[in-house]
Design a protein around this nucleic acid. Sequence first.
DNA 1: CCTACATGCTGTAGCCACTACAGAATCAAC
DNA 2: GTTGATTCTGTAGTGGCTACAGCATGTAGG
Lengths: 137, 137
Amino acid sequence: MITIGALSKRTGVNIETIRYYERIRLIPPPPRTDSGRRLYGAEDVRRLTFIRHARDLGFDIAAIKTMLALQGVPEAPCEQVSRIATNQLEAVESRIRRLLGLRTELTRMIKECDNGKVATCRIIEVLADSADHPDGP
Amino acid sequence: MITIGALSKRTGVNIETIRYYERIRLIPPPPRTDSGRRLYGAEDVRRLTFIRHARDLGFDIAAIKTMLALQGVPEAPCEQVSRIATNQLEAVESRIRRLLGLRTELTRMIKECDNGKVATCRIIEVLADSADHPDGP
DNA sequence: CCTACATGCTGTAGCCACTACAGAATCAAC
DNA sequence: GTTGATTCTGTAGTGGCTACAGCATGTAGG
């Protein structure tokens, strides 16, 4: 059994974040010492490692909760897990597309800025340009 | 002079968001009608369009505030604006790199999942795998 | 003129996923 | 026994909005 500090070091999850996860019921409340300090075991390390890894991959807390619940039912088909992961992949790909667009525009902006005066700065011009927006006529 | 609803439609910025921008002093408080309704002009449309475009490009409010302040001083060298944009470009590129990594990992995970039972699900296995983290030994 | 309904106002609270702090208690090492 | 690290609870803050409640206006049709 290890303390919250050791769990934090082992999993790379902030101490405050671990307590936060407990508060939102992402992890179960652990047993305590006589003086009230939290004590964690190997299963907690595993669960928190899973959470950290999933968060790193951009899964939100709700998705992680679902996946953790599914892990409690090993006979369940992993269709749902697969669907969550696929959704996540789609979100990631859409973000990539969007960011590639931003990169193009930012690169152009910076290149066209001749480091002269703001009055002629392309960056500001480009941004001030009233480009169409989705709701526009 | 147009109302806040018209400004919202014209710029694509939510009404609540416009009032929020006023509250955080990103846009100046406009004149009002006798009954207290906000009235905006062409300059407000331009400013809000600028803000919206910059937000779309991922600039944060602080950066936008700086750029707006610089626009008030047209003789200023646009070095500072250029630096903000360059920082932004670096942030965007780093996000792209990270997301490309995520995509690779997600794709591999999903491919290896044979849609069997949760007990043997590769997605869950990969996530539960205690990969090294920065603070690790 | 009256009635709907749309639009606007203020102020506050909520969202996500944390993070930071205050102030107290306990622990480990010397 | 004293220092310093760790942990505890509870609350509040972050960014960038978004969603209400509850009221006051504006506009169009009958």
